[in-house]
């Protein structure tokens, strides 16, 4: 039950059967997380380093917890890229860490393509925990695990991704993963935040949020970054909220059940209203739990742990 690729760098072109294997394995680890003793010995003796060149709280904790649940030894490395610019190069940093004999690197980096470079510099298995505005494959896998859990299927599922698509690695990985699994994807957000020629990947773009809600089975609501306002990517929070904000009032107009997801951290009252985030239709906290399970599955499958008893 091995995966075809040695690394997990992104979901573009990632084999469908491997995505399914990861999701299925994640469900078995979900059971482990429900046990009183939440630890299995699968990765005993394996050393994993979490290389975070960009601030992250939840992704890093999720990975660290997944590693500890699998009994791996973990080391954390955090560095701001500004210190890298001044001194030691990316190559030196990672080769130094590699020299300490590690089995896998989980890396978050602000630059697209950095994980691919990392595979050239180190022999360890590389897992992309987000590379700039490129991909965030483990997030997309946990999102798909959550959708599969909720609906029981992915093929034919209609998913709307709402918000800043241009700067979202979550969106790009979700697009690749969902399309591979046979789901349909519609993007919705201000035209200034939709990347060029994105339709050519096989998605639809619709600027009318109500139409997308009417169409979709689930919405993945992305975080809007306030600093985008200053560079003319959207004019104001007020206008964003009125056109693209997910509010209970807006959802109530549509007489249908719709599942709400958010990768976090949320701007409550901006892209998502508190009443929606805390409602039964939101599966945001399930995503967090599935995040640990999915990352356990990925680490387990990539690091070739022995079958768990």
């Amino acid at each position: 039950m091995r995966l075809q690729n040695r690394h997990l760098l992104g979901l573009e072109g990632y084999p469908k059967e491997d995505i399914q294997t990861i999701i299925d394995t994640a469900f078995t680890f979900r059971e482990v997380l429900d046990r009183p003793i939440k630890k299995v010995p699968s990765l005993q003796g394996k050393t994993i380093v979490n290389l975070f060149f960009e601030n992250s709280t939840r992704t890093r904790i999720s990975f660290e917890l997944a590693q500890k649940r699998l009994s791996a030894d973990t080391v954390n490395f955090s560095a701001s890229t500004s210190s890298l610019k001044k001194g030691e190069s990316f190559k030196d940093t990672v080769q130094n860490i590699e020299a300490m004999k590690i089995d896998a690197c989980v890396m978050r980096h602000p630059t697209p393509g950095a994980p691919l470079r990392l595979t050239e510099y180190v022999d360890a298995i590389v897992i992309n925990a987000g590379d700039g505005t490129h991909e965030h494959p483990t997030q997309a896998i946990l999102d798909m695990t959550s959708l599969q859990e909720k609906f029981g299927y992915l093929k034919g599922l209609k998913v709307g991704i709402i918000g800043d698509i241009s700067h979202s690695r979550v969106a790009l990985s979700n697009i690749h993963g969902l399309l591979t699994m046979g789901a349909e994807v519609t993007l919705c957000g201000p035209a200034t935040l939709i990347p060029p020629q994105i339709e050519e990947l096989g998605v639809s773009v619709n600027y009318n949020l109500d139409e997308v809600i009417e169409w979709a089975d689930a919405l993945n609501v992305l975080r809007i970054q306030m600093e985008r306002m200053g560079v003319n990517l959207f004019p104001s929070i007020r206008e964003y909220r009125s056109k693209f904000g997910i509010t209970s009032e807006r959802l109530a107009k549509h007489k249908k059940e719709i599942v709400i997801m958010h990768p976090g951290p949320m701007n409550r009252g901006v892209e998502i209203e508190s009443a929606v985030a805390d409602s039964d239709q939101a599966i945001i906290l399930d995503q967090v739990l599935n995040g640990v399970a999915s990352r356990m599955a990925i680490l387990y499958l990539l690091l070739g742990g022995k079958a768990e008893s």
Partner: peptide, 15 residues
């Protein structure tokens, strides 16, 4: 170059 490739690679494009 701005286009499908810059979108796929997540790199800022230059039109």
């Amino acid at each position: 170059n701005e286009g499908l490739m810059s979108t796929r690679l997540g790199l800022p494009g230059n039109p």
